[in-house]
Computed example of a mutant assay.
Amino acid sequence: MDMLKPADLPDDIAALKALLVASEGRNLRKQDRIDQLEKLVADFRRALFGARSEKTDPEQFELALEDIETAMAAVHAEDAALDPPASRATKPRNTNRGSLPKHLPRIEEVIEPEQTLCGCGAERHVIGEDTSERLDIIPAQFRVIVTRRPKYACRSCTNGVVQAPAPARLIPGGMPTEATVAHVLVSKYADHLPLYRQAQIYSRQGIDLDRSTLAGW
């Protein structure tokens, strides 16, 4: 926020007090942000240059980076709220909003106006359209594959029972499908998601699995 000039200050004492209180509040909030960022920077330095016993786990390193980005975004948002665009010089920010790959499926919805009949009595026709895209996500869905193998017997003789053989499983007698095992492995080794956290995700869906069980897959 730009510094106020003496000519911009109100003459009313109550207004001056309110302005001073608001300024002190902003300074305190910014100091809190500064203290938080300084602590995170210190953690980074210790992780990079500290002794072996002080080095930070890579996962905690990524979490600290997210904390810094979140704190910086909060500071920018607060500055924007306190200093509206009309009161400061326009300066474009370099932001990366990401891009939506072409291979992702598109679910289109068309929002038509409530009335297309013109006041003259004629029907309006389409001359163009505005299109926008948003990224949506479908949470992981668990399902149970039930395999039934009917048994057939002859009512006229006793030549035995016929039944299809059980399909081969990746883990003999095990509960997971091949897709489930692949998901656990990719989550652990590619996404660095520990088994205990995966067990917590399963637990939220009512599926109780021990970490040792996941490790055996």
Rank of each mutant, 00 (worst) to 15 (best):
171 I>P: 02
61 F>Q: 03
147 T>D: 13
145 I>H: 12
128 G>W: 04
166 A>W: 05
112 E>L: 15
180 T>N: 05
84 P>D: 10
58 P>T: 13
151 K>R: 12
98 G>D: 11
94 N>V: 11
51 A>L: 10
203 S>R: 14
51 A>Y: 03
132 S>R: 13
84 P>V: 05
200 Q>C: 02
207 I>D: 03
211 R>I: 15
137 I>W: 10
44 F>Y: 14
129 E>M: 06
77 A>H: 11
193 L>P: 00
193 L>A: 00
73 A>M: 13
59 E>M: 09
184 V>E: 07
35 D>V: 03
107 I>N: 06
64 A>G: 14
146 V>Q: 10
204 R>W: 06
99 S>A: 11
152 Y>W: 15
28 L>C: 05
88 R>I: 11
211 R>V: 15
119 G>P: 01
217 W>I: 06
57 D>L: 12
201 I>N: 04
91 K>L: 12
71 A>L: 06
94 N>S: 08
60 Q>S: 10
141 Q>W: 02
99 S>G: 04
134 R>W: 00
130 D>T: 09
14 A>K: 12
72 M>C: 14
180 T>D: 10
103 H>M: 03
164 A>S: 09
160 G>S: 10
109 E>C: 00
211 R>P: 01
212 S>P: 05
124 R>N: 09
174 G>Y: 05
137 I>V: 14
1 M>G: 04
172 P>Y: 02
117 L>P: 01
69 E>W: 02
65 L>D: 07
155 R>W: 02
92 P>M: 11
187 S>F: 03
78 E>Y: 07
29 R>A: 13
204 R>Q: 14
8 D>Y: 00
4 L>V: 05
135 L>N: 02
50 G>S: 07
